[in-house]
Design a protein around this nucleic acid. Structure first.
Length: 270
DNA sequence: AGCGGAACCTGTCGGC
DNA sequence: TGCCGACAGGTTCCGC
């Protein structure tokens, strides 16, 4: 499901519902997502308080008394807050019993998501490899331009590489390039300073707008309270193959870059 | 160093 | 109806 705006939406929901709660007990239904054995995971978490919840790139950080629980939802991971007497769903992978009275459910159809139990130092080491947060006040168009200058890869592929900029995924990469009028195959280092400025502004505007609309629910993304996001209503090209471009009415095209779909308007993005 | 491709999983959808 | 391949919002590993 999730790119930066969706993870931010989840983090905000979790903050409201479970920040400062204490983990009483953990039940693991499937070990695949975990970085350690189920019993180690469960025993280590029991008794720790969730002090702070925050986001870095597409990661969720649960800052506990002694550990960082680092979550990544990959394609289909979800966190849902519910009641302790809820029935076990088919894709429930981990239950966190919380005090006061709540159940935090981690569910994941495809089981590609991860829950890593780390020390603060290990988490730090892992996250420092990521590029800058595109919405950070300190992130500038000049920084983006300088980063682009270092890469000959297609700009779409560049945007997906988390070491360049953190948090953009397949939906927003296509949307950002459409809004910037840039062809997805343009080598990153061939993009002018002026075009980069436009891409920077599009990036910040689109990501912030999406957060304001609680993210994009294309198939199964849900908020912590199981509501959908609303930003799918504002997408211009993603998954719109053969539909007329909103600006020029040319049919939107799909192509494959790095084994992933890219959507674009051949007229608006020459 | 940097690239393309496969792997990790499971479900869904379209075509024949 | 049934089967099969393609595809899905992501990351990481491996070999060239």
């Amino acid at each position: 499901m999730p790119e930066l705006p969706e993870v931010e939406t989840v983090v905000r929901g979790l903050r409201k519902r479970v920040e400062s709660s204490r983990i009483l007990k953990v039940k693991v239904f499937r070990e695949t997502p975990l970085s350690v054995k189920a019993d180690v995971f469960a025993n280590a978490l029991a008794g720790q308080q969730i002090r702070v919840i925050r986001r870095r790139a597409k990661y969720l950080l649960f800052e506990l008394d002694r550990h960082i629980l680092l979550g990544h939802l990959r394609m289909t991971g979800k966190f849902v807050v519910t009641h302790p007497d809820v029935a076990q769903g088919p894709y429930h992978r981990v239950w966190f019993y919380l005090e006061p009275e709540a159940l935090l459910v981690y569910e994941d159809v495809r089981c590609l998501g991860t829950l890593e139990l780390l020390t603060p130092e290990e988490a730090e080491k892992k996250l420092e490899k990521l590029g800058p947060e595109p919405l950070a006040e300190t992130f500038t168009s000049l920084e983006l331009f300088q980063q682009c200058q270092k890469s000959a890869r297609p700009i779409k592929v560049f945007l997906l590489d988390q070491r360049n900029i953190a948090g953009i995924g397949n939906i927003y990469a296509s949307e950002i390039l459409f809004a910037s009028g840039l062809n997805p195959e343009r080598p990153a280092h061939r993009i002018s300073k002026k075009e980069c400025q436009k891409m920077y502004e599009a990036m910040r505007r689109i990501l912030q707008d999406s957060i304001d609309h609680h993210g994009t629910s294309v198939s199964d993304f849900r908020r912590v309270d199981d509501k959908t996001g609303e930003f799918q209503n504002f997408l211009n090209v993603y998954d719109k193959t053969n539909q007329p471009c909103r600006i020029c009415h040319t049919p939107v095209q799909r192509m494959v870059q790095q084994q992933r779909s890219t959507f674009f308007c051949p007229t608006c993005q020459p």
